[in-house]
């Protein structure tokens, strides 16, 4: 069993947990993910690693309740335990590798985090800060109440821009608007990392392609085993079929076929499920999260 040593509610429907998993904490790196399974009947849920403490042997995960399994997970409290917790899985972020430090130092990097994607951006920015590399971070959400990690991010980012779609906090607009604004001001970037809902990553990539900024995205497709066995997470990158679990989860965003990846995410969504989500989310439901399939 893998006990939960800390639980916090970061924002509406967004939760943080520290989970004791020494084997995962010992060698994990930013960019990698874990798979958690709550109990005997539970699904295997892939989640990007948001922080780690090698000494305490803990992994920090952040998740948003989007379906039955994440709702079930949010009901767990400190002292409860996951039946299964495996990782680290996938490739570490290339930016956060000692052997690439020389190259990374030369880059002017901008991170764009959308929604719960702020969580996996954090350890990368923190790692870079620890290696004396200052980066720009644009983090956004739909509205003020959904923002989290603002202070934590400010502590590790060279420049932090916070955006909300409704203008209730920070820059009024989306991450793409903010990036465009920075570029218009005369700031230059030669590397971008975008993590968030697929629809957001798609539009960031559309913009950075125009701006000529190479962009890395972290894909979160449907997975089962997470070790390369099932092929559920396959996606088209360039003209090749890749498995997000072993080849990714980070890919060249300018080569990812987002429309297909978003369609594939809908495989197990039912009409009823979508209706339920629309009901629960009320006014904040705009169908663009890449999770529910949208309102068609």
């Amino acid at each position: 069993m893998y006990p939960i040593t800390r639980k916090e509610k970061l924002a509406d429907k967004i939760f943080l947990m520290d989970v004791k998993a020494p084997r995962v904490a010992e060698y994990c790196l930013p960019g990698q993910f874990i798979i958690a399974k709550i109990d005997e009947t539970g699904e295997r849920i892939p989640l990007t690693i948001c922080d780690y403490d090698r000494e305490a042997g803990t992994i920090t995960i952040v998740f948003q309740t989007v379906g039955a399994s994440t709702v079930k997970m949010a009901a767990l409290e400190e002292g409860d335990a996951f039946q299964d917790f495996v990782g680290p899985l996938g490739q570490p972020s290339e930016l956060c590798m000692e052997e690439n430090l020389e190259e990374t130092r030369k880059k002017k990097i901008v991170f764009i985090a959308g929604g719960v994607g702020t969580a996996p951006v954090y350890p990368q920015v923190k790692w870079l800060k620890e290696h004396d590399i200052d980066v720009t971070v644009i983090m956004g959400s739909r509205t003020k109440d959904l923002l989290f990690y603002v202070d934590e991010m400010r502590a590790v980012a060279g420049q932090l821009c916070v955006t909300t779609d409704d203008g209730s906090y920070g820059f009024h607009g989306m991450g793409t608007n903010q990036l465009q604004a920075l570029v218009d001001e005369g700031q230059t970037f030669d590397w971008c990392v975008a993590i968030g809902p697929m629809i957001m990553m798609k539009f960031v990539c559309k913009l950075t392609k125009e701006l000529g900024i190479p962009t890395i995205v972290s894909m979160n497709p449907i997975m089962v085993d997470g070790t390369g066995m099932c092929g559920a997470c396959r996606l088209v990158v360039g003209d090749k079929v890749k498995f997000a679990c072993v080849d990714g989860p980070e890919f060249d965003g300018h080569l990812v076929d987002f429309d297909q990846a978003m369609a594939r995410q809908q495989q197990y969504k039912t009409e009823e499920g979508r209706a339920m989500l629309a009901l629960q989310e009320g006014e904040t439901h705009h169908g663009g999260c890449g999770n529910c399939g949208g309102d068609e």
Partner: peptide, 25 residues
């Protein structure tokens, strides 16, 4: 890559290991 195309590994893993046929999650 269309929805509804699975590897046998995925289909069988969902059913056998994850026990979809017993209405697990």
């Amino acid at each position: 890559q269309a929805n509804g195309v699975f590897s046998a590994n995925e289909f069988l893993t969902r059913n056998n290991l994850m026990k979809a046929f017993k209405n697990y999650d």
